[in-house]
């Protein structure tokens, strides 16, 4: 898989910092939502201090349970939902600052593919117009936008003369998701956020779309942030993996490392809950019991301690940190067991 990391020597005119500069740096991003009827000042901590680095040309997989803040994180990255605090640095420029990059410029370079392929296409617009919409609002002429749309439709494997004039309800789920990918790519982004982009597809179509995504990434020199709850899919497509739990990052590392030797008990439980084709690897007992705690009132200290088999006093008293990471080979986890000085009885073992 590491072969996909090495981008071919292709220079994008918009590339400012070179290959070594990360595509995107998220620093302590935070987004809380007010909740009505849950007491005064009650907030859902959807994204609560998320930091990570996305390097150029890589695919970063984001996994986690439903409601852990994956989708909110994606929307915060595009400023579709404004963060309460924290910084977003795109290719060296801070987003939204006077000396940095504007949100409009960010959206020209970062695009998103949504999960629901049906509701993310206008039902009353032929798909070629949906695809041409992005270039058109970015100042291209109507004819040129149409031409771009046709080119992109070819790239995603749909014949423009056949599928272009059709309406979304005349397409299958896989075809619709291809159109959605085309729509995202028509603007000419350098980075694409795929928010559960293949989750609603059946397995064979999912595999086709995944391969299409890999192919597009190679030919168009893209960087992916791939959000999914399906660990097998994430493993297939990702170079690195970020695990979220209740709005926070609990583990971050190269996909092979994380899947081979997870350091955080939550990641271990997630991996343990995967279904296997091998009948000898039955899941005997549920890896995690219960529902995740309410994100309105998360547990003190480590948020996973209420469901963690190794929870101790220190987990309740102190919130573990993710520690330091510099490069794409670092494998870190926010767990006291990874820190030899934490006072946890199993400290230093994970």
């Amino acid at each position: 898989m590491s072969a996909t990391v090495q981008a071919k020597p292709y220079v994008d005119g918009r590339d400012r910092g070179g290959a070594a500069q990360p595509m995107l740096i998220a620093k302590e991003l935070q987004r809380h939502f007010k909740v009505k009827g849950a007491g005064k000042g009650a907030v859902v901590r959807a994204v609560d201090g998320v930091s990570f680095t996305l390097f150029k040309g890589e695919t970063l997989g984001v996994v986690g349970e439903s409601g852990c803040g994956k989708s909110t994180l994606a929307r915060v990255l595009l400023h579709l939902v404004l963060p309460d605090s924290g910084d977003l640095v795109f290719d060296g420029d801070t987003v939204g600052e006077t000396r940095g990059i504007s949100v409009a410029d960010l959206r020209r370079q970062v695009q998103m593919v949504f999960q629901d392929s049906y509701s993310s296409l206008n039902p009353r617009m032929p798909v070629q117009d949906s695809v041409a919409f992005g270039p058109m609002v970015n100042g291209k002429s109507k004819a040129e936008s149409r031409r771009i749309a046709q080119d992109i439709l070819v790239k995603v494997g749909l014949r423009p003369d056949l599928f272009g004039p059709r309406y979304p309800h005349e397409l299958s789920g896989g075809q619709k998701q291809r159109v959605n990918i085309a729509r995202a790519l028509a603007v000419g982004p350098r980075m694409v956020i795929l928010d559960e982009a293949v989750s609603a597809l059946d397995k064979s179509v999912e595999a086709q779309v995944l391969n299409l995504l890999r192919e597009l990434k190679r030919t168009l020199n893209l960087t992916y942030l791939f959000i999914s709850h399906d660990l097998n899919v994430v493993r297939y497509i990702s170079d690195r993996v970020l695990v979220m739990y209740l709005g926070q990052v609990v583990e971050l590392g190269p996909a092979a490392d994380v899947f081979a030797k997870a350091r955080h008990p939550y990641t271990q439980a997630l991996l343990g809950s995967r279904l296997s084709m091998d009948s000898s690897k039955r899941i005997e007992s549920p890896p995690i019991v219960g529902d995740p705690p309410s994100p309105i009132n998360p547990p003190s200290g480590c948020r996973f301690r209420t469901r963690c088999p190794h929870a101790e006093a220190v987990c309740e008293a102190e919130m573990p940190t993710l520690g330091q990471w510099e490069d794409r080979s670092s494998h870190v986890a926010a767990c006291h067991m990874t820190n030899a000085q934490s006072g946890h009885s199993l400290a230093g073992t994970a």
Partner: peptide, 19 residues
């Protein structure tokens, strides 16, 4: 990777679905 088994399916198989 587990999902590699399905990698042979061509990405452009939707071409067959000509209406």
């Amino acid at each position: 990777p587990v999902a590699l088994a399905v990698a042979e399916i061509p990405a452009d198989s939707d071409f067959d679905g000509a209406p």
